[in-house]
């Protein structure tokens, strides 16, 4: 056991050596690749010969429809998308905050009885469960649910974004809260601060800039999501795109899609710039 003459002394590289677990993992990945390619009917020939249809579709989009009516419809669609994504992120953040605070695991206080420990764990698990449900259902499914319940329009779309955002932000917020340096928090607790005081004055201030940056990023994601929520009738520019597609009005589709790309890119740039400033 002590002497293994075959293995030369050394630290080895950054990539794991060829060992049983590694070979097994490689085999599994290869198998999954083949099986999935078969399942989706992966076909390079089809991909390359599909070029003609795409060409036709694209050429029919040009020139884009720049009539006043279309531009107005585009403007309305963009504004609606923007409003949905903004409110969705804001309401999501407001709902996420208390859930994240409850869903953050604190080091158990020394001397707690097991019953107290159990009681303290209940809000944690409830909050985590709610956040998981909010987050793991995709926003487009939430949109379907709300459209069925409330009818067509941007309002159900906004609600869908809010619920999904709350789930995502809640999880990210609580992760931020948990990874914040805990020594200042412990120092507060050791000088007699209550749990709530240690959280408010020790943990929260350290997480704030992280929260702001995460919320901005979520807003960015919401803008992208909001453009497709219209496909299930939940308002925004997607609804206009769908209608024009169904009417084979490709020049109008071109204008709508072009405008969407521009807005998404702009918001992306803006939020990236703000987040960079927040981080420094």
């Amino acid at each position: 056991m002590a002497s293994r003459p075959t293995s030369p002394p050394g630290l080895g590289g950054a990539i794991p050596r060829f060992s049983w677990p590694v070979s097994l993992a490689l085999l599994v990945i290869l198998g999954l690749t083949g099986w999935s390619a078969y399942g989706v009917g992966f076909d390079l020939v089809e991909l390359l010969s599909g070029g003609g249809a795409v060409e036709r579709f694209v050429s029919e989009m040009f020139p884009p429809d720049l009539s006043a009516a279309t531009l107005r419809a585009t403007g309305v669609g963009i504004l609606e998308t923007f409003q949905m994504s903004f409110l969705g992120a804001l309401i999501g953040a407001i709902v996420a905050f208390p859930l994240a605070a409850l869903g953050t695991r604190e080091a158990p206080t020394v001397g707690m009885s097991s019953v107290e420990r159990l009681l303290a764990a209940i809000p944690y698990h409830v909050a985590r469960f709610v956040l998981n449900v909010f987050r793991s259902v995709p926003d487009i499914l939430w949109a379907l649910v709300f459209v069925v319940a409330l009818g067509l329009g941007p309002f159900p779309g906004m609600l869908a974004l809010a619920v999904h955002s709350a789930g995502v932000l809640g999880k990210l917020y609580s992760e931020t809260l948990e990874t914040v340096p805990s020594r200042p928090v412990e120092a507060l607790r050791a000088t007699g601060a209550t749990e709530l005081q240690a959280f408010l004055f020790g943990r929260l201030p350290q997480a704030m800039s992280g929260f702001a940056s995460l919320t901005l990023y979520q807003w960015e994601c919401n803008i992208r999501s909001a453009t497709i929520l219209g496909f299930v009738g939940a308002g925004g520019i997607g609804q206009q795109i769908l209608i024009s597609m169904n009417l084979f009005d490709y020049p109008k589709v071109a204008t709508l899609v072009g405008a969407t790309i521009v807005v998404v890119l702009l918001v992306d740039r803006f939020s990236a710039a703000v987040r960079r400033r927040l981080m420094s």
């Binding site: 340096p181 020594r183 200042p184 120092a187 004055f201 020790g202 201030p205 350290q206 704030m208 800039s209």
Partner: peptide, 9 residues
Amino acid sequence: HQAYNLVPE
């Protein structure tokens, strides 16, 4: 402590 016991923000 030697350091890190204040809230930096």
